[in-house]
Every structure is written in structure tokens, then in C-alpha cells.
Simulated assay, not measured.
Amino acid sequence: MDFRQLTYFLAIVDHGGFNRAAAALYVSQPSLSQAIQGLERDVGSCLFHRMGRRVVLTEAGTALVPRAREALHALELARASVGAVRELRGGRLEIATMASPTIEPLSTMVQRFTERYPAVSLSVRVALTREDVVEMVRTGGCELGLLTTSSPLPSRDVIPHHVGDDRLVLVTPMDGPFPVGQAVQREQLAGHRLIVGQRGTGIRAYVDDLKALGIDVRIAVETEHRMAFLPLVLGGVGLAVVTASWADLSERAGALVLDLEPASLQHNILVSRKAQLTPAARAFLEVAVPPAHRSSL
């Protein structure tokens, strides 16, 4: 078993098949298949069920995933630690993030980091819910994760770093049902059609709480794609509750942004692994997390 085999194995897992993994790795599919066959001989078990062009992890393959990630992380840590003396001169950092904080605070974090460490490559991976973010960090898929939440995190396997709060606002067409400049009481949303995210997000939780309070809001569209909210709102499909970080973009697109009453806050949390971090991950935390909220790095 070698690190190349483990890299190929995880690429198939992450990209969902041999063809996509080979393209992402810039290797031929026969070379990829041969490496996996060698890995399967080494571990003495089949790692994938082949179903036409699709592959599904076997029980042995599922068991290998976290161990493979740990092994590659250890190698990356060793390589990065050797190469990092006074400043980072290369390397790669993967960050998992929910959709809401991708505009802010992630954009500012990335801007500050790349200004200070331009040689480090960042990879931002999408996670649909806060549980997805935590799982990607916990299992080693990413070293850091950014999520929004209004309640405690569901896992003790990661270290949380509070990086600010974001209130929820209402986005409507400019000729929508509410006057400019006046906050919208949550009871006023009764009878209106809303565009919502999937379950597990703070925005969806807010809408579900309205329904639990007996406020008759109607879900017009449920979508995982946050960038679809604005076109749908401007097209008259419905109204959308989003975090205030989207306010500027919404207004520039021609939508009306209104405060909601009572105010509802979402907490932006950057989570890191409990295992030792690479220099790039530690440097990102130092740039992104206010000193008062910074755990021991």
C-alpha cells in the first residue's frame, strides 16, 4: 500500500467514479484501475462494487476511507511542516462551507489570507448543512469548515471558533408587498410564498419555526442552490429569507431588502480538526479568527 494508491482511492470516492477521478488526477483510467487493483490486493478485499459506470463502496472500502484520509493528512502535515519556515511558500488548504457564509465572512477571510500567503492554493468545497460541514472536517475531508447556526453544534469532534454574527433579512421584488424602509413583522409573512433552503440550514429553520408558531407561510420553492434565490425572487416566484451578507448583492441586482422583526441572528462558526493542523490551516485560523475567540492553535 502506498500514498499514490490511497490518493487514487479517495479521488474515486470524492468524484463519484473512475472516469471523473482519472480526469481530476490527470491520469489514464487504466493506470487508475491498476493502482486500485493493487490496493485491493494489499488490503485483501474488494473496495468497490462496479455497477456499469457507477461504483459503490463495499464495507471494506467504507472502513478504509477515514484511515486513508488520516494517512494522507499525516503526509501533507509532514511535507508542509518541512516547507514552512517563516512563511508559507506553497501547499493547499481545503475548506468546507455552507452557502450562506460564502459571500461573507468567507470572502474577506480568503482575501486577507491570500494577500499574506499568495503561494497557498485554497479549495472551497460546498456543504449543504452544518452537519455536512462538521462531518467533512471530522473525517478529514477538509481541515477547516465554515457554517452558520442558531443553536449548539451537533458534534464534539471539532473545535469551534466564533467569527461573527449575521442577522436574517427578507428579500422581495422592488414592487413587492411591503413598503421600503419598514421592518417586516414575522406575522406579516402569513399567506406569502417563500423560497427556502433545504432542511438543516438556519434559513430553513427560521421558516419552519414560523410554521410552528402558526404563521401560515407557504413554501413555493425548496432549493439547495442559494444563487437561485435572487432570480426566483425577481421573477415573482416568492420572497426569500437570507442572511444580511447577501443584502448588498440583492440590492445591486434590483431587489428590496427589509429587516425582520423580531430580529433573528445566525452565528458564523469556523470549525477545525482536533488533530494537529497543517501550517496553512493554522495560518488561516490566525487570519480569520479574532484573537478573543481563538482557541489554542
Score class of each variant (00 low, 15 high):
residue 6 L to D: 11
residue 16 G to E: 03
residue 17 G to E: 07
residue 24 A to F: 03
residue 24 A to R: 03
residue 25 L to C: 12
residue 29 Q to I: 05
residue 36 I to K: 02
residue 41 R to W: 04
residue 46 C to H: 09
residue 49 H to Y: 10
residue 51 M to A: 12
residue 53 R to Q: 14
residue 65 V to L: 07
residue 67 R to F: 00
residue 68 A to Q: 03
residue 69 R to S: 00
residue 75 L to E: 14
residue 88 L to Q: 11
residue 90 G to A: 11
residue 93 L to E: 13
residue 95 I to G: 05
residue 95 I to D: 06
residue 99 A to R: 10
residue 104 E to M: 14
residue 107 S to Q: 14
residue 112 R to Q: 14
residue 114 T to V: 10
residue 120 V to A: 02
residue 121 S to W: 00
residue 123 S to A: 06
residue 124 V to W: 07
residue 129 T to P: 07
residue 135 E to K: 13
residue 137 V to P: 04
residue 137 V to I: 07
residue 140 G to I: 06
residue 148 T to Y: 10
residue 148 T to L: 15
residue 148 T to H: 04
residue 151 S to V: 14
residue 152 P to H: 04
residue 153 L to W: 08
residue 153 L to E: 03
residue 155 S to K: 11
residue 159 I to P: 02
residue 164 G to R: 04
residue 165 D to I: 03
residue 168 L to E: 01
residue 176 G to T: 06
residue 178 F to Y: 07
residue 183 A to E: 11
residue 183 A to R: 04
residue 187 E to F: 09
residue 196 V to A: 07
residue 203 I to G: 10
residue 215 I to N: 10
residue 222 E to H: 06
residue 225 H to I: 09
residue 233 V to C: 01
residue 235 G to T: 02
residue 236 G to A: 03
residue 237 V to Q: 12
residue 243 T to H: 08
residue 243 T to S: 15
residue 244 A to M: 06
residue 247 A to E: 08
residue 252 R to H: 15
residue 252 R to C: 11
residue 258 L to T: 01
residue 263 A to E: 13
residue 266 Q to V: 13
residue 266 Q to Y: 13
residue 276 Q to T: 14
residue 277 L to I: 05
residue 278 T to S: 15
residue 293 H to G: 04
residue 295 S to C: 10
